[in-house]
């Protein structure tokens, strides 16, 4: 089985982003960038499927700026076999990324695409589903367990109030949730070896896909800070407020 793992370079999850004063975006100058944590989980799951004998070829792909090559190298250091960078000037919207990935899927012909359930920068939670829609492939979002079966996959998903298990035919799309696995550390020798693994670069513009943004950002702001409420005198008063004012119990 061949697995394609799309990954995204995002502001590191330890970094507190701050909105620029003029509201045009978040400050990214000199900010540490890393692989989207959910994508790291996706890479790890692909590696584990390979280690179980269910997969033999793992290709990672990223759509973005030239520095996304560093992120791909991280995935190669974790153990992916090959990388493709689709270079674009900015980070395209999920619909455009899904169209780019569809083209790559047609070229690479993977049996399975695993990707993070969402990127921690724009929190769109859409690329996997959109790619599944474009390809008309089955999808399992928010996966917490993935098993290869004789004729497909069994995937346990995290849903509201519990989990559910689906069976999928292949080819299929799976999006990784937090509890799917804990990604491995890339070791020093593997980081060195990763420098020599193949990494192809394609210009997004050469794919003939319309990358025009459908969503125009009018403004960006920090969320309003909470204001202190009232201090109450008794438990009875609290219960009354929660019932009749806040209406939450």
């Amino acid at each position: 089985m061949k697995i394609l793992v799309p990954i995204k370079r995002v502001v590191d999850y330890n970094v507190k982003v701050r909105v620029r004063r003029d509201g045009t975006g978040v400050e990214t100058a000199g900010v540490k960038m890393s692989m989207n944590p959910f994508d790291e989980i996706a890479v790890e799951e692909a590696l584990r499927l390979r280690e179980k004998g269910a997969a033999d070829d793992i290709v990672v792909v990223s759509v973005g700026v030239p520095q996304a090559a560093d992120t791909l190298r991280t995935a190669l250091a974790m153990g992916a076999d090959r990388a493709i960078l689709v270079q674009s000037e900015e980070s395209p919207e999920p619909l455009a990324v899904a169209k780019i990935l569809k083209t790559l899927v047609e070229r690479e012909k993977p049996d399975l695409v695993i990707l993070g359930k969402q990127a921690i920068d724009d929190d769109m939670n859409a690329t996997g589903q959109m790619l599944a829609g474009l390809l008309d492939w089955p999808q399992a979002t928010f996966a917490s367990r993935v098993e290869k079966t004789d004729d497909g996959l069994t995937v346990t998903r995290e849903v509201d109030g519990g989990s559910e298990t689906l069976s999928l035919t292949l080819p299929a799309i799976v999006t990784a949730d937090l509890r799917l696995n804990e990604p491995r550390y890339a070791s020093l020798p593997n980081i060195m070896k990763a420098k020599k693994k193949p990494l192809d670069t394609i210009a997004a513009a050469d794919l003939g896909i319309d990358l025009t943004r459908r969503l125009t950002m009018l403004s960006m702001a920090e969320p309003p800070t909470r204001k202190a409420g009232v201090k109450l005198g008794s438990v009875a008063e609290l219960v009354e407020k929660l019932r009749n004012e806040a209406k939450v119990i």
Binding site: P94, L95, M124, A126, Q129, A132, G133, T141, R214
Partner: peptide
Amino acid sequence: SALPRAAARLDVQIIP
């Protein structure tokens, strides 16, 4: 799960 999939089929960018 369902709406982004439908949006892609409709060539629409989902707004989550």
